[in-house]
Nucleic acid binder design. Structure first.
Lengths: 298, 298
DNA sequence: GGCATCCATAGCCGTAGGCTATTACAGCTT
DNA sequence: AAGCTGTAATAGCCTACGGCTATGGATGCC
């Protein structure tokens, strides 16, 4: 009788791509027959034809055109409901969930915790690791309340952020690499080397850690890694090299990887992010505590 | 990952009833364990506790309270999307779906069809019977575009209507009944007789055809019937009697039931109904055609 | 004409959503 | 105190549905 919200997402994907095959494989990551079946089922549920398929092309019917903006709105409201439900729960339980992708270190958490003890007594922090493949670091789905992350974040996704710290970018190399002999490395020497990249789904962060803006031509991507550990394993195995912030060098110290500072690159910015419409005290206090941590007292 | 819209309905029902058992059996017509399981699943999906159950009572958590109005809004938008999608489809295909509960007769349809041929060439009418148990005659779910129905309709459900015809109420009796001997019957003589009623879910129509407003005490309901045919079978079987509009006497003529006019009751009103926000030309034209059918020319 | 592309169909499988029966507990009533 | 009632949770079962792969048929392109 009622559809699933997921079916509305399916519909939106097909309506936007105007192709079952592409919507299925590129956006929804399901098989094309499964998508066809589900759309047919949605059509049966609504007793309406949503698409005209004439063997070669897919077009929206009047009914489909009417449904599309409404489906978008419903999905939008649902995402919002998820977020605000999670926020209400977190507020009631006095738990602030902090998302992170790589280990934070830098003494940030102890300092922040101390500051929070004053402003938010009996609140607790909960840490949740988020894969690079989620460019909103769990904020979009309401999985976390705030996130410690490297910038930039994708634009126009309703996220706000402030910079916590600025750090030079270093490069991770296998110990035997020719560049491991010297001390610092000019970035120009790296542009033809193979790199270990973040997944495409990581958004602008992938470009940043490939230093795509500073290259004359696209980087050679030797492999993609989902986590920092995976990246360093790949580096140690000699697959390629990877950029990382200076502060992570101590955190990820290991025998089979050496780190060298890179010249000629803009520094990386560590930030704290939150959902723009989220005006809760706890979020504001946490953000301020983070920002004040390295930039002197409040 | 995403919930089903049905799960939101489940949640709303439990939140409003504050009881799994009652919500399950009275409103959702599923078993209590199934409802419990689904609510738990919704909670797992949102990673939040929606209800505090302390063995005896169920209360909303802060998260539940945050979700409730948003869930209502989403369901509302979904209903609206269904309706407007159906409307767009009907408009594109030039098909107007007419809901009805009992046979219409009275020469209404031929007359209306003639009038429509002028104003809406190449539109077709599609008729769909709707059970008495849907008090919106299929309009709420978008199953029909307009409906021919007896008044009154439930209030505040976004439906508009106009009166097509006014008819005296008659009574259907088994042939051997003492009141079948005379010609007309005063309603006062019927108030202690057992009646065949429409289902409770039919809304105010049930009261109207029991003439509840004209009784000193509630009617004796011998049985409930889902359709006109069922009602007359019950009357023929001697289970009780039933009121009906004068015009239906000819339509439902049969050997084992006799009909007599009833004095002392306000007349019944046959109406044409549509969704108030539905401003389509086709609907307006159809409504006008119906109204003009017995009330003289437009 | 052959190939590539795209949607539909067929058939299979695992999970999820429903059911009944039962348990556990709280608040009454006797 | 014992038992009854009412409510939610648990256990175990079955079906239906949402996903998959493999394949078919039609269309546009080289």
């Amino acid at each position: 009788m009622d559809a699933r919200l997921q079916d509305l997402r399916y519909f939106i994907a097909v309506a936007e791509e105007l192709s079952f095959t592409r919507a299925a494989s590129d956006r929804l990551f399901i098989s094309q027959p499964a998508l066809s079946k589900q759309i047919r089922q949605l059509e049966a549920c609504l007793r309406v034809t949503l698409f005209d398929r004439d063997r070669r092309t897919v077009t929206l019917t009047a009914a489909g055109a009417a449904l599309l903006p409404r489906a978008r709105r419903i999905i939008e409201l649902w995402e919002q409901a998820r977020q605000e439900t999670a926020e209400a729960s977190a507020t009631q339980r006095a738990i602030l969930t902090v998302g992170f992708q790589t280990r934070i270190g830098r003494g940030l958490i102890p300092t922040v915790t101390d500051r929070l003890a004053d402003a938010l007594p009996n609140w607790r922090l909960l840490f949740r690791q988020v894969p690079w493949s989620d460019p909103s670091i769990g904020l979009a789905k309401g999985a976390v309340d705030v996130a410690i992350t490297w910038l930039p974040l994708p634009r126009d996704t309703g996220l706000s952020w402030r910079v916590i710290a600025t750090e030079q970018r270093w490069v991770a190399l296998p110990p035997g690499h020719r560049l491991a002999r010297g001390n610092a490395v000019p970035f120009a020497e790296l542009i033809d080397e193979p790199f270990i990249a973040l997944p495409t789904s990581a958004g602008p962060l992938r470009e940043f850690w490939l230093a795509a803006a500073d290259r004359p031509r696209p980087a050679t991507v030797a492999a993609e890694a989902e986590t920092a550990e995976e990246t360093l394993e790949a580096v140690a195995a000699g697959l390629g090299m990877a950029l990382l912030p200076a502060g992570n060098v101590e955190i990820y110290q290991r025998d089979d990887v050496v780190y060298r500072p890179v010249h000629g690159l803009s520094p990386g910015e560590l930030g704290v992010a939150w959902r723009s419409p989220d005006r809760r005290d706890a979020v504001r206090v946490f953000v301020n505590a983070c920002v004040g941590c390295f930039c002197g007292p409040d």
